[in-house]
Nucleic acid binder design. Structure first.
Length: 419
DNA sequence: TCTGGGGTCCTAGGACCC
DNA sequence: TCTGGGGTCCTAGGACCC
């Protein structure tokens, strides 16, 4: 058996921990640039705020019901996530952290009769130690644990824990579980399945194997096995290094100047390269993209990207900034108002297995101590204590973030004051 | 006026080899 | 008229996740 532990309305919960008077009130958290609604309290859901909707579209609803609104605050969520995960890592021999607010726990060594108390106690402990409430689903496979969690969230009588003990438990649950809510069945597959009369998870689990393999490919087949109780999705490593690192942002106002865009890209590179070094990796491909608004008139729309392959994989910020600038030169066109830009590092490999460049156009050792020094200073004295000139100095923020709460757990200046 | 920011896995098809 | 049979590697882009 394995458990899925899923934090309830995670971003909202993080805000409420440090602002307890918001408990039982409608609260939402917005995406970057205050664009979309990405987390909602139970009360906000009940008022009809859909997931992912553009914030301006529900402005009236927010005003009318006095819904408390926060800009996203990722340093806070990341830190709260680590606290929850630390408890989970201690609770089971193997833990697979799946996202910022979810993890799978291997419970195969736990006797069946102990599962219920273990899950309930874990749930209480997490709430007591972090203030975050979680829902736990226990089942023989990841996909079924997802179903169990889903059921628990919809039925408050279950008190946040749902366990599939028997085949019959599973059968009953799958019969009234909509096919489009299965983990791994997205919009495309759901439309296809429904066209052929497959509406429930149970129907999916009994569909002909060959037909499924042909149309939904290998992942469709794996999902079917999972629903039948046969584990088919790997239990991945807890701290697997990223294979791709993206840093991107939407801008508050359109950017029209090359230099301004170049500075924004440089700041993305700085953060991406820091992440790269943090996980002990080097990259051999950098790509850059810029885009106008997706919603503007078609003749004002422009999207383009460019990439550079690096002869020798590296993690040197200054080098990558130069490469990003070269990419921008290729794709930048005047006359457009750019709304978003991003940097992608890919073809990432561990630093110790780096393939050297026979022509030695770049010698990584020379900058290693410099990079270490910069990282150490920024780690101990705060991010951006030392910056690169290419990021631009004293610039005004390019991003909208009007309702950001304090960095209660990661900045000495912003600790919560209690009186 | 205003529409997020990360990720992963899989497949088809091209380029290439003998 | 008819034009082999067996492979590998790489990449772009789709589908999906939170």
């Amino acid at each position: 058996m394995l458990a899925l532990v899923d934090c309830d309305s995670f971003f909202v919960s993080c805000q409420v921990v440090f602002n307890p008077k918001l408990r039982s009130k409608p609260v939402i958290v917005l995406s970057g640039n205050d664009g979309c609604v990405v987390s909602r309290s139970k009360e906000a859901k009940a008022l009809g705020i859909p997931m992912g909707i553009a914030a301006f579209k529900v402005k009236d609803l927010i005003k009318k019901h006095r819904i408390y609104t926060f800009s996203s605050n990722f340093p806070l969520y990341g830190d709260m996530s680590q606290r929850v995960m630390a408890i989970l890592l201690d609770a089971a021999p193997r833990v697979s952290i799946y996202s910022i607010d979810e993890a799978f726990l291997d419970l195969s060594t736990i006797p069946k009769e102990d599962l219920k108390s273990l899950a309930s106690e874990l749930r209480e402990k997490i709430y007591k130690w972090t203030g975050i409430s979680v829902t736990i689903g226990v089942a023989p496979t990841k996909t079924l644990a997802k179903v169990a969690t889903n059921k628990a969230k919809k039925n408050s009588n279950l008190k946040g824990v749902h366990i599939f003990y028997t085949k019959n438990d599973i059968y009953k649950a799958l019969c009234d579980f909509p096919v489009e809510e299965i983990w791994g069945v997205g919009r495309e597959s759901a439309r296809f399945l429904k066209y052929y009369g497959i509406d429930t998870a149970h129907q999916f689990s009994t569909a002909p194997e060959k037909w499924l393999r042909k149309n939904l490919k290998i992942f469709g087949l794996k999902t079917q096995k999972e629903l039948q109780g046969v584990p088919s999705i790997n239990f991945t490593q807890t701290y697997a290094p990223k294979k791709q690192i993206i840093r991107s942002r939407s801008f508050k106002n359109q950017i029209t100047e090359f230099e301004a865009l170049s500075e924004a890209l440089a700041s993305f590179v700085v953060r991406a390269a820091f992440k790269l070094r943090e996980q002990g990796s080097v990259t051999s491909k950098i790509s850059v993209y810029i885009r106008t608004s997706k919603y503007s008139a078609s003749h004002l729309r422009y999207y383009n990207s460019a990439e550079k392959k690096l002869l020798s994989p590296i993690n040197d910020t200054a080098f990558l900034i130069k490469e990003a600038r070269e990419c921008l030169k290729i794709i930048f066109k005047t006359g457009y108002g750019y709304k978003k830009a991003g940097v992608v590092l890919s073809d990432i490999v561990p630093e110790h297995s780096r393939q050297m460049d026979i022509f030695r156009t770049y010698e990584p050792e020379t900058s290693k101590s410099l990079l270490n020094a910069i990282d150490n200073i920024n780690n101990t004295m705060g991010a951006r204590t030392i910056q690169y000139g290419a990021e631009g100095l004293n610039r005004k923020s390019l991003y909208r973030s009007a309702k950001k709460s304090g960095l209660y757990t990661t900045s000495w200046e912003e600790l919560l004051r209690v009186s």
